[in-house]
Design a protein around this nucleic acid. Structure first.
Lengths: 206, 206
DNA sequence: TCCTGTGAACAACTTCACAGCG
DNA sequence: CGCTGTGAAGTTGTTCACAGGA
């Protein structure tokens, strides 16, 4: 199979959001043109994106919404729940603990912080452990994904502990400055960067 | 001037992060190769990115770190503080109110919520108003950017109120389903989508 | 000499346009 | 006929390779 553009994968997540929305209207068939309109892109791009993974549609008709949803979830690997561990129960961290990520197939099973007064407590039913126990708890509970919401200066250490515990991927709110000992996929959420890009778009004269 | 790739703008924000970091080491000159290594990209891409905006470097030497920082901030429009209004003082919203965005040139001046018990209070020195007052406060205080951290079903209404108040750009944590009355730049932070992309990267056999 | 800035080559991604199937 | 799936064309973004200035 050809290499898949990252942009295609990102759009797949948009398609999923649209499908969830459209499903509520009771529709069962969806055409590339309609899905494209929802996402403000061209219909041929929708077809191209889906065609990377097989032939899901029916010529002359469109795509079965249920089938399409199942296929996209399979492609994204969210056809089964993934267990997540979150480090850093500060502002962002505790907000995420209350966030309904489970709806999207991600289950935050354990949280970690360095503050003794937090260790042993629970937020939203999620137990908080000490950060030094990250490797052990990741292994014991079979956590696959780590979310990093700690200050930047310790983010690298936390990432290493997650990797030591067998994490397969990391989503980080802090820049990981040092190269990681073992290569696993890392994605960033950079609020400041998004605001800066927005600022550029505002200022540039079109 | 040629059209600038969005990827270039995103990298500009990375360059800024690197510069902030490198400045602390006391260096005053930076070469494209070094900056590229920090960002794990090619040196020619760094030079290409910068060349879109003029000739900042000195041949045979490199770039003055201070000059480069100033130029990039100018390009991104963050050479002056931008005032921000934030709607939705829930989990994510109140975390953002405590986040030091000011360091990056963004000043959250007002927050908004629909809950009467929050209205009139302050978080981190930022006053909370009722969401119905978004247009008035945006105008009165000259807010340029709106951050949306409200539930998805009211996100569209909130966006419209911000636009009515003269907002020039929006950063949203919720999908804005309806088309906006006036076209302004909108960027999204989609935590679920990032996790889904991460999931894909984990599952795919390389 | 060394590193920047940039045409030209190359690679990646998107759109076009239509064959082909239901 | 209508809509998908896909070669081919077109467009956009990145790398190469080197001219040219400090």
């Amino acid at each position: 199979m050809r290499r898949i553009p990252e942009a295609t994968i990102r759009r797949l997540t948009h398609y999923l959001r649209c499908i969830e929305f459209i499903k509520e209207t009771g529709a069962t068939i969806l055409q590339s043109r309609e899905l494209a309109a929802f996402c403000s892109i061209s219909d041929s791009l929708v077809r191209r994106d889906l065609s990377y993974f097989g032939e899901f549609g029916t010529k002359g008709v469109g795509y079965s919404i249920d089938e399409l949803e199942k296929h996209i979830k399979k492609i994204l690997g969210i056809d089964r729940i993934k267990k997540v561990g979150l480090a850093g129960v500060g502002n962002i961290g505790s907000a995420l603990l209350k966030f309904p990520l489970r709806r999207n197939g991600f289950h935050i099973v354990a949280a970690f912080d360095i503050k003794e007064e937090l260790v042993g407590r629970e937020i939203n039913g999620i137990p908080i452990y000490h950060e030094k126990d990250i490797p052990r708890i990741f292994k014991e509970k079979g956590l696959e994904i780590g979310i990093i919401a700690v200050p930047q200066n310790v983010a690298g250490d936390v990432a290493e502990k997650m990797i030591e515990g067998g994490a397969k991927g990391i989503l980080s709110f802090a820049l990981l400055q040092c190269p990681l000992s073992r290569k696993i996929p890392v994605r960033y959420i950079e609020i400041a960067a998004e605001l800066e890009i927005l600022s550029y778009e505002i200022e540039k004269e079109d």
